[in-house]
């Protein structure tokens, strides 16, 4: 990790701790914030979070292994680098029965990716996700924070073209 990013992580972690506090109930929100900014939680960030939580005024003692255990458990936090844009496709039954599989196949073909993979140019990462609670407009896919409902295979290219 470059020196620039390292100081970024430190500042980000500090801000997250100020916002969410130092108690154990802040661990997941802090990891989520780091994940939101970097797209994943880099290895050094675990150590940085534990370092900052354990210094002055820290009521908790947490080490990077525990934080890694958390991050890898929760689906919205990634421990591996992802592309600039992450496509999350709902693979659950309500989207599946209204034509989700065709959309998923088209996505895989168009991007030439399988579930969990990232394109060589680091533009796209394609993952499946569990239900997003938007079942009334399924099939649903999420590009970064943008939600697309009632998606048809024909719309896939159009949606992908919106992103740089």
């Amino acid at each position: 990790m470059s020196a620039l990013i390292e100081s970024d992580v430190a500042a980000l972690v500090q801000a997250a701790i100020e916002k969410h506090g130092r108690n154990p109930d802040a661990f997941i929100p802090i990891l989520s914030e780091v994940n939101h900014v970097f797209g994943h939680v880099p290895g050094d960030a675990f150590r940085e979070i534990s370092r900052q939580l354990n210094i002055e005024g820290g009521r908790v003692n947490v080490v990077e292994s525990q934080l890694y255990g958390l991050a890898s458990f929760y689906d919205m936090i990634s421990t591996k680098p992802r592309g600039r844009h992450v496509i999350k496709f709902c693979e659950n039954a309500p989207c599946h029965v209204v034509g989700g599989k065709a959309v998923w196949d088209t996505l895989q073909e168009t991007l030439n990716l399988k579930n969990g993979e990232t394109t060589p140019d680091s533009k796209w990462t394609l993952v499946t996700t569990s239900c997003l609670g938007l079942c009334s407009v399924g099939p649903v896919l999420l590009v970064d924070d943008d939600m697309y409902g009632n998606v048809t295979p024909e719309q896939v290219t159009d949606i992908l073209e919106r992103y740089e």
Binding site: G43, V63, Y68, G69, S72
Partner: peptide, 27 residues
């Protein structure tokens, strides 16, 4: 020493040292 933690979930659950590094690096 908190070296080991359970990582991932479901069928992929397995112990890893630290943030998925090696044991000595994880103290």
């Amino acid at each position: 020493r908190f070296v080991w933690t359970m990582a991932e979930r479901g069928f992929d659950t397995h112990p890893v040292p630290g943030a998925d590094t090696d044991m000595l690096d994880a103290r």
